[in-house]
Design a protein around this nucleic acid. Structure first.
Lengths: 248, 248
DNA sequence: ACCTGAACACCGTTCAAGT
DNA sequence: ACCTGAACACCGTTCAAGT
């Protein structure tokens, strides 16, 4: 006779940092950065705004924790997506090459910024405001291990890993479609419309000031973001090999 | 008998978009993003908050305009700084090579993010929120022209230029010390303290989870940011040459 | 056309008071 | 120890009213 829901009273779980951060990510995904307020958060958690401050020091920490949670999930996820699976395995077939592993991490981060439109901006904020935080090491470590596996000499580990990380962050930042207010954040239609908007804008630039940009404007239309992103990764990897490979 | 100041009544110049944006940049530089409010802006302009809305649609446009102004100044500035001048000129000595020009643009942007701690975050915001704006073309154009001058085939112009831009934006973003609240934004002491903080934090990471990051933590201490940044540029340029140079 | 400044609807954060 | 919710000090933006 009493209610018999599978999971007992989802409502009344005690407040916790994890639960708060989880709802914060949900809010960021659905209503954007402006929609993440302590009042909205409190309402979804069926509590008052003040209660949140017992677990989190303030909004800065909340955003940092949300960013960290999403990045942690991205770098520890397995290889994903159709474009990423075409890489060559090692000669003996004993698992992915370091280059493949780098591509997998990079694509996971790239996809995360598309799934969470707020992520790119928050990554920039977190890395520039608190670079000693947990976000940078997570990314740096997962890339650096593979750089080491590529037999890059130790003196160049830092430069090579940094270059990879910077390219990934820069590219992810620019490709993130910030669809604040759009109801279908990552749909195909939005995507094409978006690329078309950029392409058209570039074609309309002053011919005297922007000859190059105008010349490539048409290449923007309908290009595959992930493929373009991987081309850039290949370029950086080629640079690492050219400058730092021991066999040269 | 009347007042005879050199420049007549600096106070009473009419309000204009340029004047508003100029003061906005000043406020961003001195009191940070949080300190840029319409009330503070109005006070410095000796007017009321509402007056600003006659020239600017809102805070979003204000931040976009401030970012655009700083980027425009950076990409159109001449080669600057001691580290950038050591490059090789063309064989006939007839001006800088495309690679030198790329280094100059990159360094100017890098230096701009250090002079304006808010720039890195704003670049990410502007590029992800309104990529059809003026900021991306400015950077893209100044890099792309040089890529073309490097004799990269047209099919690879977009990839090569994008890779350069993304690396620069990512690196500039991470190296920007966001000294909000610090009185001396870019001082040497701050710089060393800052690097020391990062290095120490990385050394304190879990040895099982972060072996690579710990291994390179010491390299962070006391390293030269601009040199490190240029090493990354060299790496990307090497990748462009390796993959896209016609003579291979 | 351009400016004024009060007013509105919010927001992050605090804190006495509860359990 | 943990939560409540009213209150405080803001903030972006609007708009009737002025010149």
């Amino acid at each position: 006779m009493a209610s018999r829901s599978r999971r007992p009273e989802r409502r009344q779980e005690p407040l916790s940092r994890e639960r708060i951060v989880g709802v914060a990510v949900e809010l960021l995904d659905t209503v954007g950065e402006r929609g993440l307020t302590f009042r909205a958060l409190a309402e979804r958690l069926a509590t008052g705004p003040g209660a949140i401050y017992w677990h989190i020091t303030g909004k800065a920490e909340l955003l940092a924790a949300a960013t960290d949670a999403v990045v942690a999930a991205a770098v520890s996820a397995g290889p994903a997506g159709p474009t990423g699976s075409g890489g060559s395995a090692g000669p003996t077939g004993a698992g992915p090459s370091p280059q493949d592993a780098i591509r997998a991490v990079a694509l996971n981060l790239f996809d995360a910024t598309e799934a969470h439109p707020w992520l790119a901006t928050q990554l920039a904020t977190q890395l520039s405001r608190t670079p000693w935080g947990t976000v940078a090491p997570r990314i740096f470590e997962s890339l650096g291990r593979q750089v080491r596996a590529m037999d890059v000499p130790e003196a160049h580990w830092f430069t090579a890993s940094s270059a990879l990380m910077h390219y990934i962050l820069g590219a992810a930042g620019q490709n993130a479609v910030n669809a604040e207010g759009t109801d279908t954040p990552g749909s195909e239609v939005d995507r094409d419309e978006f690329l078309d908007t950029v392409s058209t804008a570039w074609e309309g630039l002053d011919p005297d000031d922007y000859p190059f940009t105008r010349a490539v404007a048409d290449q923007v239309r309908g290009h595959d973001d992930r493929e373009q992103f991987l081309d850039g990764i290949a370029l950086v990897l080629a640079g690492i090999t050219a400058l730092h490979s021991p066999g040269r």
